[in-house]
Design a protein around this nucleic acid. Sequence first.
DNA 1: CCCGGAACCTGAAGGC
DNA 2: TGCCTTCAGGTTCCGG
Length: 268
Amino acid sequence: MPELPEVETIRRDLEPLVLGATIVGVEIYWPGSIARPSAPEFEDLITGRTILHLGRRGKYLIFALSGGWNLIVHLAMTGRLLLNQVERDKHTRAVFHLEDGHNLLFVNMRKFGRLYLVKDAQEVVGRLGPEPLEAEFTPQRLAHLLANRRGALKPLLLNQRFLAGLGNIYADEALFVAGLHPQRRADTLSPEEVGRLCGAIRLVLKEGLKDGGTTLEAYRRPNEEKGRHQERLQVFQRTGGPCPRCGATIERIVLAGRGTYFCPRCQR
DNA sequence: CCCGGAACCTGAAGGC
DNA sequence: TGCCTTCAGGTTCCGG
């Protein structure tokens, strides 16, 4: 799914196009997409509201609406937000009609994505860890987060309460750039290694963002364009290929149920 | 609290 | 062709 760079790309694409637009109606084709309130209440409450701001926290998009409401969208693995002249297909779960005639489609093949309509956004995003691209995310902060964590690094990087925005792709890429083994016990990093990890996380997210995200399959920008970062991935889904740094063969293991790619020579 | 595994879904790809 | 298994970018819940 969209991880931080993909969600932020969507936010940047969408923001200038939907700011100030009023939602004049919504059609819900899969009510299970609505996390809260109930689908009928959702329809009722959102109709007539104007989009005042589009923000992001971790992998969540936050549409601030008039009247103090927030529409919060999580795309999960296969979610898309598409704008304009896009035909509804069998995976379209909801359509928002905007006053200017544009349609915003929520498309989600596997039905894991969710829409929330809440007054207080913190109800949904309040328990997330720090934003890795904000200035608050420093080696000191990361060292503090890692202290007393006895589990492996990789699953911890995927824990959104630990750090917001990393998913399977960028977690593996960050560990590769940092030269750290995904199974390395989190509380054993030296200060120098913590510094490398901090820099690596920020670097891979910025590079992904620069490329408009990574499209392996489902991810699309609001105009259906693909991302370009898949061409620059160093280890993710490159099993059997050469490590770009040392030439050793990239390996795949399963950690906490997730496919995990790394260079056995560079990552210790 | 911390951690790993199962569950939630649909579809594509590969083996037989 | 058809059936079966495996895998997929996420999150939450449950049990140890």
